[in-house]
Computed example of a mutant assay.
Amino acid sequence: MRVMTLRRRIALLTVIGVLCAGTIAVVAGVLGGATGTGSAGVADSTAGSAATGSPADGSAVVAFYGDSYTRGTGASSRAARWSTIVCAERGWTEVNPSTNGLGFVNNRANLPGPDLVDQVIKAQPDIVISTMGLNDNFVMPGRADDVRAAIDTDFTELKKALPHTRFIIVEPFWYTDERPESVERIIGWVRDAAVAIDADYIPGASHWMDGHPEWKAADNLHPNDVGYREIAVRMDAELAKLGL
């Protein structure tokens, strides 16, 4: 099975990495959503923006639209984040401008450069994988109408600009076993918006970290390398169900 194959490959690469590198420093980051700030929490500080390969080789270009959980904050390196593991497994070219603390609304005005929607469109990807939504819980319920409207606007804009791209919308991640009511509301809005643009939808991701504090980085907010590997395994299985 693909899931077991990926798990075995990850385990092997981990052993090799430890033997070769010796000591790995885990750099802790913050969600940024609660405070309006976001820090670079990946050992490779370029991890949030660069493509990991060249589309010239004919591989599918996959753009990720997400926050710190997709940027890889808390991981020891770019290679340890779940998006890069999944892309390496499939031979995809990764474009990942995901940003700490960002939501459909939260911290949107604080971006120092182009909006993520514009960056995704510029990449002209074959596939877009969206995981956005976690940080919007920090502006709920006061800006509920804004959040719902922004979800619809972003997905509609992406679909209009990329009519031939395959969209995979992932249920927004969550980081504690306790869940405010806003989590389910935002999940519902994201799911409805995915249906509206005829996107594939992956449910359940908000529970993938449940019951596993040992998968957390030192900040107790983000996954560590083990947590990102587990997310990669789960994501791999869901993508396989979609024929990818």
Rank of each mutant, 00 (worst) to 15 (best):
P180T: 04
A196F: 05
A193Y: 12
I151H: 11
G17V: 00
A51G: 03
T23K: 06
E94Y: 01
N135D: 04
P223S: 10
A34V: 03
I202H: 00
S98E: 03
D118Y: 10
A150K: 15
T5G: 04
A25Y: 10
R234Q: 13
P223C: 10
G29F: 03
D225W: 08
D236L: 05
V147T: 01
A50R: 03
G22E: 12
G32D: 01
P114M: 13
I85H: 11
T37L: 11
A196P: 01
A199L: 08
R166Y: 12
G91N: 13
P223A: 10
E184D: 10
T131S: 03
E89H: 13
V30G: 00
R185E: 02
G133C: 07
G74D: 03
E157V: 15
K241T: 15
A80Y: 03
V26L: 15
P55E: 02
D146L: 06
G227H: 06
T37P: 01
T70K: 04
I129K: 07
L6H: 10
I129G: 07
L31H: 14
T70D: 02
T153A: 15
D146N: 10
G38E: 08
H164D: 15
I231M: 14
T23E: 05
F155G: 02
P141Y: 14
W174K: 05
A43W: 01
V183W: 04
C87F: 03
K160A: 14
A109D: 13
P55T: 00
N106D: 08
D67E: 13
A109H: 08
E94A: 02
V42G: 06
L244Y: 04
V26S: 12
A196E: 10
R143I: 05
A161T: 12
M235R: 12
E184V: 07
M4G: 06
N110F: 09
L162W: 08
